[in-house]
Design a protein around this nucleic acid. Structure first.
Length: 929
RNA sequence: GGGCGCAUAGCUCAGUUGGUUAGAGCACACGCUUGAUAAGCGUGGGGUCGGUGGUUCAAGUCCACCUGUGCCCA
């Protein structure tokens, strides 16, 4: 012994380079790069090739901004599931995708182009949109990778890829071939100066002064009786086709002079004031549904205006009798559909009344466009109304009214020709509802939700008056007849598959049709291209066809679709319709939905909550593992709260996990499995107990993952780390790990258990927190930061066979229960009295009733083992008569304290050069080199 | 206004088919330890289960209504 050591240096204290602090924000990106270089995704797929497959089909995020925390949640859940399934042996090819077309991008790009004052046509606009989308694909892909998402990024799909666009057209060809497509009118926002249709996003609501008028409609079967409507758009009256009442509200027959007016009871007071009806009386009452079915006359056109009932009629304003012009309002339109009314719109593109034989001659050619002195059409209609005596009151009304974002002028609602998919033809709707019965739902109520949508949605309007999308491949002759031909669409799809949809916008109709043999009756006509694009829900709704059927890496149908619950109405539904039409079956076997991220108060996150809720804003603060741990700690089927408090809690859980792992790595620093491993049948009881607890954990986590209840898995893991390991197992084994000879059998037994436990634990947390799991895995394999045999390539853990050791596990459990319930209590008493500090200062006396269960148990242990379990210096067991209660008492241990093991022993032994130690330590030191 | 959901300790979650004093981890308080140390251990306080009213011998657990809240629609 050349250099004198302190006693502490003779202990086997934990030793590891695995850092206590994750420093995740800086270190995770390097591990991400390591995975990419090591080709982890490909290796995961190769490993399970030929095995059963699990296809999770990615719903494409929209490419118009940074990844939102909600989108991150979605991708994290997908990655977690795939890592779990892959570890279980499933082949899990995962092709991520991007939804590229659509108004939000077109809108942003249009704004940008307008601001830079350049002229642009649809070809240029589309180019800009494509660039915009591409740049966000790059951004988002990087952000997804940073979250730890493993995917086949080289084969990702994009709805704007030519091949994908072609599949959209082929799907549309199926619609056409099955005769599901028809043309009909539907009201859209229309800007008269721009002569274009507008989307909701292109509308600005501004204060506007409109006329407010009350107009009476003569009832046909009641003499001198009228219904009275209120409106702020007199110009829509020529298109009036009905009057709506609420079926369950009460209506009064108000008598004034020699005429009667039917008004909703709640509106009588206000109405009489507005129209100056002094001294009115109420003659009669009824409910709305009694009025429905009667017929009124249009005030100035020879036309019936039936009374119909509608649920949306409110009692807040007006008269409770609502003027219905199906061509000029969405509610009106739906009411019109319901009651078989014409979707009537007597306006041309310039907003002028057309001469259709119904419009009064003095209105024909008059424009509804608002100028400084108001709308000519309004003036003209008011003139007619007041001359005919139908106008009961005319005032001004201040309200918010939609304006065109470009021309700043008020927009109108105007019915235009649109393309629809008939959802009831050949029992399509019923087939969808039957098909969905075969699909599993998590949570189960998702079935209800999608059923509600399937049942009630009207025919699908699939045309949009936009540029950034897939064109509706239709041609018109000079009379406006439409050529919609599935062969032609397939012909065009082949072109698009090579050149992309741009070909439609950059080529003339003639060029596009070149090489196609037109149907006989269409030959020789002058044809022009349609201007509309397809609803983008068709784009993403075709992904099962374009992706699952389009790649040999993957197969149709998917085992799982996993998106937010808003997609019951969106993607799940659009995918179902297209799949039922083209493939006669649903594209998915299970639908899993998650809720939305809300703030700490359970309210939706809004801009007023401060910082932008991008995934990056969290990743750059907490790291990806913490964000993932948060996602997996929450029951994602309902709303998912996110707050600083919750993330702080997640950080603490992460640190606990990290420390637990670090302790185990440190305890294994001198353990070589090949040389030192002790098989379970030779292990000490406490180690068997710990392995048994690990088995339980494996089962719990596996069950939870199979049910997609990750939060339960995380709770199990947290409980395991703190309850089983940290406060129990680790605490107990410190003595043997630190003080025994390095290769003592007991110590090796514990290390053998530890390595097995740690391997299992790392594999279990792998899907949730892949960065720390892989980091620890490398340290365990090679004592280095990185290794090529990454954790993601390992199999899901198996339980250790302990069938022959059940008794030992049960015994230890009952002794630990005694420790929790009685021993710690008596130790705490001593501590409070300042008689002891750490539990090793104590001696415990157990008075055990003879022939009881515990008596039997204790007989299977010697006193040293008991002292070790209770982490005290000495144990005294004294039997008491059967039937009495167990008694546990504690007192300060007697004898002297060993400065090495801190245990109290009757006497110490002198060992050079260290001095006096316990006999057990003396033996260890005698062989210490 | 309508459809589908959600509501248990400060936080995140458990609470099987209704049945003893409602559990866990974290947080908090107090104490111990200083050989996992920007760590570890022990002990303790804290919910009457969003509210009201029912059904029942018995309800967090069933029913009705209300309130709050989320998604979707209008």
């Amino acid at each position: 012994m050349n250099s004198p050591e302190s006693l502490k240096d003779t202990l086997n204290l934990p030793k590891t380079d695995f850092p206590m602090r994750a420093n995740a924000v800086e270190r995770e990106p390097a591990r991400m790069d390591h995975w990419e270089k090591a080709g982890v995704y490909s290796k995961m797929q190769e490993k399970n090739q030929g095995g059963p497959s699990f296809i999770l089909h990615d719903g494409p995020p929209f490419t118009n901004g940074d990844v939102h925390v909600g989108t991150a949640l979605n991708k994290i859940l997908k990655d977690t599931i795939l890592r779990f399934k892959n570890a279980q042996g499933f082949s899990t090819p995962y092709l991520p995708g991007w939804d590229c077309h659509g108004l939000p991008i077109e809108h942003k790009v249009t704004k940008k182009l307008r601001d830079s004052k350049v002229d642009f046509d649809s070809v240029q606009l589309r180019k800009e949109c494509e660039d915009f989308s591409k740049s966000y694909i790059e951004t988002q892909r990087g952000q997804f990778k940073r979250l730890g998402v493993l995917a086949d990024w080289e084969n990702e799909y994009r709805t704007m890829n030519p091949a994908y666009e072609a599949e959209i057209l082929r799907t549309f060809a199926d619609f056409v071939e099955q005769d599901l497509i028809y043309r009909s009118k539907k009201p859209v926002y229309w800007s008269i100066p721009c002569q274009t249709a507008l989307a909701e996003a292109e509308i600005e609501y501004k204060d506007h002064v409109s006329p407010s008028i009350f107009v009476r409609f003569q009832l046909k079967e009641q003499e001198n009786a009228f219904v009275v409507i209120w409106t702020t758009t007199p110009w829509t009256l020529p298109a009036n086709l009905a009057v709506a009442v609420h079926p369950r509200e009460k209506y009064c027959k108000v008598s004034h002079g020699d005429v009667f007016y039917w008004i909703a009871e709640q509106r009588v007071q206000s109405f009489s004031e507005e129209c100056g009806l002094d001294g009115f009386t109420i003659e009669d009452t009824c409910i709305g549904s009694d009025l429905a079915g009667q017929v009124a006359s249009h005030p100035f056109i020879d036309r019936n205006s039936p009374i119909v009932s509608a649920e949306y009629v409110t009692m807040d304003t007006g008269t409770g009798c609502v003027h219905i012009a199906p061509g000029h309002g969405l509610d009106d339109y739906l009411t019109g559909l319901e009651h078989g009314l014409e979707i009537y719109c007597p306006l041309d593109d310039g907003g002028k009344y057309v001469d259709d034989g119904q419009i009064p001659s003095e209105l024909v050619g008059v424009s509804v466009l608002e100028k400084k002195d108001g709308s000519k059409a309004n003036h003209a209609v008011l003139q007619i109304l007041s001359e005919s005596g139908a106008l009961l009151a005319h005032k001004k009304h201040n309200h918010q009214y939609p304006h065109c974002w470009r021309s700043k002028s008020p927009v109108i609602f105007r019915a235009m020709d649109q393309w629809f998919v008939s959802l009831d033809k050949d029992g399509l709707r019923q087939r969808c509802m039957d098909g969905i019965r075969e699909v599993s739902f998590t949570p189960e109520w998702g079935r209800n939700r999608i059923n509600g949508f399937l049942e009630s949605r009207p025919d699908w309007c699939i045309s949009r008056q936009r540029s950034w999308g897939v064109p509706i491949p239709v041609f018109f002759d000079e009379d406006g007849n439409a050529l919609l031909d599935s062969n032609l669409i397939h012909f065009l799809a082949d072109k698009v598959s090579k050149l992309g949809c741009n070909v439609w916008f950059s080529h003339s109709a003639e060029d596009l049709l070149d090489g196609f043999d037109l149907p006989e009756e269409w030959k020789g006509r002058k044809l022009s291209k349609g201007q509309d694009t397809l609803d983008v829900w068709i784009d993403s709704g075709c992904s099962h066809r374009a992706v699952l059927r389009g790649s040999d890496k993957i197969s149709w149908p998917a085992d799982l679709y996993l998106e937010g619950s808003d997609q019951h109405r969106g993607w799940f539904q659009s995918s179902l319709w297209t799949s039922m039409i083209s493939s006669k079956a649903p594209p998915y076997r299970r639908i899993l939905t998650h809720g939305f991220v809300v703030n700490g108060e359970g309210k939706k996150i809004s801009k007023s909550d401060g910082k932008p809720q991008t995934a990056d804003s969290f990743v750059t603060k907490y790291g990806a593992d913490v964000l993932r741990l948060w996602v997996c700690s929450e029951d994602f089927r309902r709303d998912i709260p996110l707050s600083d408090e919750i993330l702080d809690q997640t950080v603490r859980a992460y640190r606990t996990l990290r420390n637990t792992i670090r302790f185990q790595l440190g305890a294994l620093h001198d353990f070589s499995e090949a040389e030192h491993n002790v098989p379970p049948k030779e292990m000490s009881s406490i180690d068997l107990w710990a392995l048994n607890k690990t088995n339980e954990l494996i089962q719990e986590v596996t069950d939870s993952c199979e049910k997609y209840e990750f939060h339960r898995a995380i709770q199990s893991i947290n409980r395991f780390c703190s309850g089983v390991l940290s406060s129990t197992y680790h605490d107990i084994i410190k003595d043997r790990l630190y003080t025994l000879r390095s290769d003592d059998k007991l110590r090796r037994s514990t290390q053998s258990a530890l390595i097995s436990i740690l391997r299992s634990l790392l594999k279990l947390i792998g899907p949730f927190t892949p960065y720390i799991a892989d980091e620890a895995w490398s340290f365990l394999q090679k004592s280095e930061e990185y290794c090529d045999d990454c954790l993601a390539l390992q199999e899901w853990p198996q339980c250790t066979d302990l069938s022959e050791k059940q008794q030992a596990c049960i015994d230890v459990q009952s002794l630990l229960d005694l420790k929790d319930s009685k021993v710690n209590e008596s130790l705490e008493n001593l501590r409070v009295k300042k008689e002891i500090g750490q539990s090793l200062d104590a001696e415990v006396t157990l008075q055990i009733p003879e022939e009881g269960e515990l008596d039997q148990t204790i007989r299977r242990f010697n006193l040293d083992e008991l002292a070790e379990l209770f982490i005290v210096s000495q144990i005294i067991v004294s039997p008491i008569p059967a039937g009495e209660d167990i008694r546990v008492s504690a007192q300060h241990a007697s004898g002297v304290r060993c400065p090495r093991s801190w245990r109290w022993v009757p006497e110490l032994v002198h060992v050079e050069p260290w001095g006096d130690v316990s006999p057990r330590c003396a033996e260890v030191l005698a062989n210490h080199s």
